[in-house]
Design a protein around this nucleic acid. Sequence first.
DNA 1: AATGAATGAGGTTTCATTCAT
DNA 2: AATGAATGAAACCTCATTCAT
Lengths: 222, 222, 222, 222
Amino acid sequence: MVAPAEPLPTELSPKARRTRASLVDAATEVFAKQQYLGTNVADIVSRAGVSHGTFYTYFDSKEDIFREVGLEMQRRFLAVRDEVPGPDEATLLERVEATNRSYLCVYQKNADLFAVIEQGATFNEELRKIRLEIRNGFVDRSEQAIARFQREGLVYDDLDARYVANALGSMVDRFAYVWLVLGEEFELEEAVRTLTLLWARALGVEAPPGTMPRKRKRRKRS
Amino acid sequence: MVAPAEPLPTELSPKARRTRASLVDAATEVFAKQQYLGTNVADIVSRAGVSHGTFYTYFDSKEDIFREVGLEMQRRFLAVRDEVPGPDEATLLERVEATNRSYLCVYQKNADLFAVIEQGATFNEELRKIRLEIRNGFVDRSEQAIARFQREGLVYDDLDARYVANALGSMVDRFAYVWLVLGEEFELEEAVRTLTLLWARALGVEAPPGTMPRKRKRRKRS
Amino acid sequence: MVAPAEPLPTELSPKARRTRASLVDAATEVFAKQQYLGTNVADIVSRAGVSHGTFYTYFDSKEDIFREVGLEMQRRFLAVRDEVPGPDEATLLERVEATNRSYLCVYQKNADLFAVIEQGATFNEELRKIRLEIRNGFVDRSEQAIARFQREGLVYDDLDARYVANALGSMVDRFAYVWLVLGEEFELEEAVRTLTLLWARALGVEAPPGTMPRKRKRRKRS
Amino acid sequence: MVAPAEPLPTELSPKARRTRASLVDAATEVFAKQQYLGTNVADIVSRAGVSHGTFYTYFDSKEDIFREVGLEMQRRFLAVRDEVPGPDEATLLERVEATNRSYLCVYQKNADLFAVIEQGATFNEELRKIRLEIRNGFVDRSEQAIARFQREGLVYDDLDARYVANALGSMVDRFAYVWLVLGEEFELEEAVRTLTLLWARALGVEAPPGTMPRKRKRRKRS
DNA sequence: AATGAATGAGGTTTCATTCAT
DNA sequence: AATGAATGAAACCTCATTCAT
């Protein structure tokens, strides 16, 4: 886990808390609009309506506030992840679909900001950790689910659950990036359907009849 | 395609070509070691053993030489792609495996440099294009293959080939990144096997007996 | 008119105003001594005793502060112009003399600096405008006066007032340059007398008896 | 006089002479188009179709070739000056008019280049001398003529001929600059007429009847 | 007589951060 | 708790000139 380095917000007076929050809000907007490298502290403080000095009473550096923005991002992702029904409430397939849809939706809503996190993660250790935590929030859970279903004989068990979870997680994660950051054109529902079916078939999950139509014909390829 | 903006190297005299090449070599090493942002022109010229001015007789800017390095990277990826056996020489499964192994191997050999391209692609339009071309070099070919096999009834045909190719390409691409850049630990052969099997099963390719063991038992999930 | 691009100095705090002023003062001295091309920002800031960064909090560039110096120059010229007695307080001849003397005096006092403005005006659009405004501050006023006196029948009316004002203005302007910048030796009072008499005679102004002695003798030239 | 620093062109072989000439031609064009500061040696050599090295076998520096261009300019001005009829061939008035017309015409034909000389004269000692020589080519001759006519009683003799010649020369010189370089709009014939009449009246030259109409009415100004 | 690759000093500008008020 | 003026280390890039070929 990435440790919070700042004095906890609860130790701040109400006024201070407001000032700090306005800085985080401003930073969020500016980072989303101008990426990490295109943002300077001047942009943030001017949008927040405070002075440079004030900025440094709440944050050690530009990186520091960026981390804060990243953590907020992480919170949003983990929140939706936790809304996905548990193993006792839905079938595996339903859960895969719900997870994929949630992930793509949050990504879509925060695409600009998430692009910045991706950027930041390429040169900032702290951000890389946050990025990995978001990722692992999904991948670890998948791994556990896959391992469990492997034990239960519901999916192929000839592959390492960790490898599989990482590969399938990468699939969704990167698909979202290509779509929402790089700008390749896709459509949400078709994306969810594709990713979910690929996931299910790759694992060997039995799909409800009708949902996963079989191949029409079979011709052996020499 | 990214258009070459530099005068063609063939127009340069042998001496000039040597100097230019030494700059590209130096840049490649320095970028790999210090990332894009951590590299300055001074580092490159001092390693190449030439003066500042010489750099600017061959390149317009740091970005310009970075693009050159990116193009070299692209060449390497496309070269290995073209070594993968064609549809008449190998089964789909063999070709998927060959492609995955090639991709991971080149990535592994050039991980540092590729990390820099990824980084550059987050803030440089030119690099983004190069990055996308590398990606599309694989994804487009997959899409065509998938579409063809769908027409031939060899794989599931209820999904859009473009979506599928992008999703599965993302899977491999991102898996390599997580492994070789972010540092999650994996092992090459197991990675190839996993990615290939997931790809094959997701598509519905018939695997040779023994290669794709069935699930041991089947228990219906309530 | 050249529009002021800087935030008005009145918006600056007293301390900021002092710092900015010290930069303008330093720039004025350095430009006067080293011309525009011979001056660099380092010279200005070191003389002002501030850091490089401080310079750029008040000015966008070397050109920017140069423009400020030019505007100050303009102010000085227009100030003396406005001290010249109006048409109801003095004869035309007295006013011509006062204007010429004022112009030469300000030029003399600021010769170095004015040379730099002349230099700057040869390659900087902004400076050219300022230079023209200084010029027009005098020429336009002359033109109006000449036109008025033409209407009143006090001077020759067979020439276009605009041409005349420009020509006579050029005479004074360039005389000052040749004298005070190029270094041809002249003496102030004789210069004022010469320019004023030439101006008066060229226009056909009646000079007070004794001031404009007639030619001693008349010999027809074959 | 400005001394020629280069080996005389006559010492060069025909081929060398051609190369040198092509450099001067190229420089003339480039300087006219891009001013002195906007011109680099690269522009000159590329237009002349020779290498950098060749440039430096004929000229010591950029300034050096600029001086050459300036000298050519000087030649053109002095040539037209020498075509003006001598004191025995024409009246003073005719000669003044011929000189003014010539000066304005050469200036008009070479305005771009002359603007560059003016620019160069503001920061290059050599150019300043050339500029002054062009000027003095006219002013000195005027001074002698004026002094002579003063002795002969044909013009006012209460002013120093040197002051007068400089003032009236400045008038024409600067008028041309304002018109042809700074872009104030004037028309050649009216300019010649204005400058000539102003010159004549300032000196007190008797004009042929009809050429210099008197003021229509005379009202004494209190 | 010509080449053109190489030079390198020098200049402008940026911006995260500090600290006196 | 807030201010905002001041900092200064870097970093990029230009271009007149040289010299080995």
